[in-house]
Amino acid sequence: MIGEVLVECAHMSCAYNSTLAIKSIDLTIRKGDFVGIVGPSGSGKTTLLKAILGSITPVEGHITKKPHLRMGYVPQVETVDWNFPVTVLEVVVMTRSSVGRLPRVTKDERADALLVLERLGLGGLENRHIRELSGGQQQRVFVARALFHRPELLVLDEPTSGVDVRTRHEVLHLLADLHDEGVSIILSTHDLNGLAAHLPRLVCLNLEIIADGSPVDVMTPEILERTFGAPMEVLVHGGMPVVVDGVGADIAERMSRLA
């Protein structure tokens, strides 16, 4: 069954000053989707997410969203000021700025926040400073903040950027669980093997959409070279595509000569 349309971009272009960041994007996100946007640095991934979130206005085309669509946004953890004096609980409830304005966290808010934290495996950590958590826990705190106002669409910018393998697995499992519970997800990543290959739908982006489909369909040498501008080889392991850097063999040969 095809899900309800949450976001629809039609011939959408966005620019910073006069420089186009994304061009003529046609993209539909439906309820139940779990979409990964892949592309190299500067390809427009974050711009596309920002356009979906409404923090950038298209210069051409348009974007339509389901009326009163609730979205939760998880920024890159690398942009977070970990020294800022906030506890886990304060981070989670701050999204209700327009509802609960006063410093005091109400009983209901506290109960709701503890429920979300418990669900994400962060029970008992609500009074800890955010710096005191492990990488995986830090990432989950920001997912908890996004989930606190029960989003229909969860938007994540590079959720596995700068994290170790274990944290990446934790994040992937968490997102899969949330998707199973009915949350639609769109995320950006340049982590092809660690994250993108595990998603049901990938959009390859480099200014424009190069391809849109399942990992098996879009993770081909031709599409990846057009997307990333570098040769790549694709192997299949356990039914899943595995991307190998195309210049790897050449480098290996040169290195072996140096040994």
């Binding site: 979205m71 700025s97 006063l102």
Partner: peptide, 23 residues
């Protein structure tokens, strides 16, 4: 500051997400 405490906190800690969240 008391009346808009959370908006001030959110906008100080994470202005980009605060903007997206309606602050």
């Amino acid at each position: 500051i008391v009346a808009l405490y959370r908006a001030f906190l959110f906008a100080t800690f994470d202005p980009e997400v605060a903007q997206v969240s309606g602050v």
